[in-house]
């Protein structure tokens, strides 16, 4: 059976038919519950008993909630530390592995492997390495005559330490995407360039990277959203927001308010505000990427 779509209308139909399965499931599983949650922001609900309507009270309270704003600042701090390095590391690793070296298959496995570990394992491993007295790093430092480092006892150090763990863990994802994108670049491009006498760094800067523009924009948006949604490893490595709860990020705040304090309506409100912020940022990023692409 062949489909020859001469008319534009048939093309649209085909396109929407292709999109349909995704959109249907996605709407049921994500969008509908999301609007349900939105409705909940106008209620007070402890999950167990019936919701009670309270109008905009949740929003009003949220505006003056210092803990909420702190957790928003924290996630921005963390994202600033991880987003760009994650993209760069993924790109650099992909470039290196794609270059002329032996054993590419092995390196691919090695640099991708940590990505498949679960968040609890990664967190435990790094927690043990960051231990103040019996942690691997400090024990090594002390053996070498260096002073031990306070990895997790201040907010700045805590975010720094968790960032390193996160970059180690998440490298595989960006790495694979860039690897796939690099395969798309025909080899003749490179051959032409080296015939012209270009050195490897010229090739990378003037040839490869511009060709990876579109991919980088995709990676960037995925990375940004992923960084903003970070929670598990921060929670586990800092021990629920150490020190003293000051490194709590927004998703942790939402989880705590909703499931521990059983203030679901309020938690949904915080989640919605967070959603608005991230959505706005993503749209801006989309706009930028579209204008860059059009060039």
């Amino acid at each position: 059976m062949e489909l020859n779509l001469s008319s534009k209308k048939k093309q649209w139909v085909f396109a929407y038919a292709m999109l349909l399965p995704y959109v249907v499931v996605y709407t049921i599983v994500k969008i509908y519950p999301f609007f349900y949650s939105l409705v909940l922001t106008f209620f007070k609900w402890d999950i167990i008993q019936d919701p009670v309507f309270i109008g905009f009270k949740n929003y009003a309270k949220l505006l003056t909630d210092e803990k909420f704003w702190m957790s928003m600042r924290n996630i921005l701090h963390f994202t600033a530390l991880t987003a760009v390095p994650a993209i760069l590391l993924g790109l650099i690793t992909a470039l290196i592995i794609s270059s002329d070296i032996r054993g590419k298959g092995i390196w691919r496995v090695i640099f991708f492997l940590p990505y498949i570990f679960s968040v609890s394992v990664v967190s435990l491993l790094w927690l043990l390495m960051y231990g103040p007295k019996y942690g691997l790093f400090n024990m090594l430092f002390v053996k070498m005559g260096l002073p031990p480092v306070e990895w997790l006892t201040t907010v700045n150090m805590a975010f720094f330490s968790v960032s390193i763990a996160t970059l180690w863990w998440g490298l595989g994802f960006n790495f694979l995407i860039y690897l796939a994108a690099l395969q798309q670049i025909p080899k003749d491009f490179y051959e032409a360039a080296s015939i012209d006498g270009a050195r490897w760094y010229h090739r990378i800067w003037y040839l490869t990277i511009p060709l990876l523009k579109r991919t980088t924009l995709t990676v960037a948006i995925l990375q940004l959203i992923a960084s903003l949604k970070s929670f598990g490893q921060i929670y586990l490595i800092t021990g629920k927001g150490a020190p003293g709860g000051k490194s709590k990020v927004i998703l942790h705040y939402i989880y705590e308010k909703g499931f521990l304090e059983l203030k679901m309506g309020y938690a949904q409100t915080a989640a919605f505000i967070f959603f608005l912020m991230v959505f706005a940022v993503s749209l801006i990023q989309l706009k930028i990427s579209q204008s860059v692409e059009d060039k």
Binding site: Y26, V29, K30, I31, P33, F34, Y36, S37, L40, I47, I221, L222, I225, K229, F231, L251, I254, Y255, G258, M264, A267, Q268, A271, F274, F275, V278, F279, S282, L283, L286
Partner: peptide
């Protein structure tokens, strides 16, 4: 993209 942004933990109960 909107869906990607929605935090899963955030809407867990409604899901």
């Amino acid at each position: 993209i909107a869906g990607m942004v929605i935090p899963g933990e955030g809407i867990m109960i409604t899901v």
